[in-house]
Amino acid sequence: MDAGPHPNPAKAADGKRLRRLEPDPFPAAIVVQIFAEFLAGFGIFAIAQRLTAAGVPCPSAHDRARNRHRIAIAWSKSAVRAILTSPRYTGHEVWNKQRKEETLTDVEDVALGYETHLKWNPKDTWLFSDHPAHPALITLETFEDAQ
């Protein structure tokens, strides 16, 4: 959703605009349910099984256009884990989650160049926006409790 002109004057001069996330009501309710069940003591495998048994479409089944490469049969532990570890659901923008690490492809032949890999930064180095950037599905406290 369009959120107005970009606050960076150079980007605004290029015609760039801010974008704001808007929650899709059905998946938003599932995200809230996943956090509630996890904080109630259910593990990620149990949550995935419960959602599949209840006939709740997994993320790739809900949005087939963006997930044609996935099977979309059932909820996976990795999908539940990804939801539980994503700070985006707090409504805050988060920076510094990952960094690029470059290593020589072959130290004996530097002409081969580098391989670049993304690595996760420690969570205590992540930077959260001071104010929400989009509607929150869960509170910061709920997210921190789930970590």
Rank of each mutant, 00 (worst) to 15 (best):
G55Q: 05
L104S: 11
S60L: 02
L84S: 11
A10I: 13
Q147C: 10
R20S: 05
L118Q: 14
S129C: 10
Y114P: 08
R64L: 09
A53L: 04
T116E: 07
A72E: 05
D24L: 10
G113M: 07
N121Y: 05
A79D: 05
A3G: 01
E93M: 14
L137Q: 05
A54Q: 04
K77R: 15
D24K: 11
G41Y: 13
R17F: 05
N67I: 06
E141R: 04
I71N: 11
T105H: 11
I47H: 05
H62V: 08
R81S: 15
A29E: 15
L84A: 07
E144L: 12
R50G: 07
N96A: 10
E22V: 11
S60Y: 06
A82E: 10
F143Q: 03
G41K: 12
V107Y: 05
F38M: 06
H69F: 13
A133T: 14
R68I: 06
D24N: 12
P9D: 03
L84H: 01
H131S: 15
L84V: 10
R66G: 14
N96I: 02
P57F: 11
S129R: 10
D124T: 02
L104N: 09
I71C: 10
A13F: 11
P23H: 05
A29L: 15
A46P: 08
N96C: 13
L21D: 03
I34H: 01
G15V: 08
Q33K: 01
P135E: 06
P132L: 13
V31A: 08
E108T: 12
S78D: 12
S60A: 15
T142E: 11
T90E: 02
L39F: 00
V80L: 04
P27L: 15
I47M: 04
G41C: 11
R66M: 08
R50Y: 08
L118I: 09
E144N: 11
H117G: 04
V80P: 00
A28Y: 10
G55P: 10
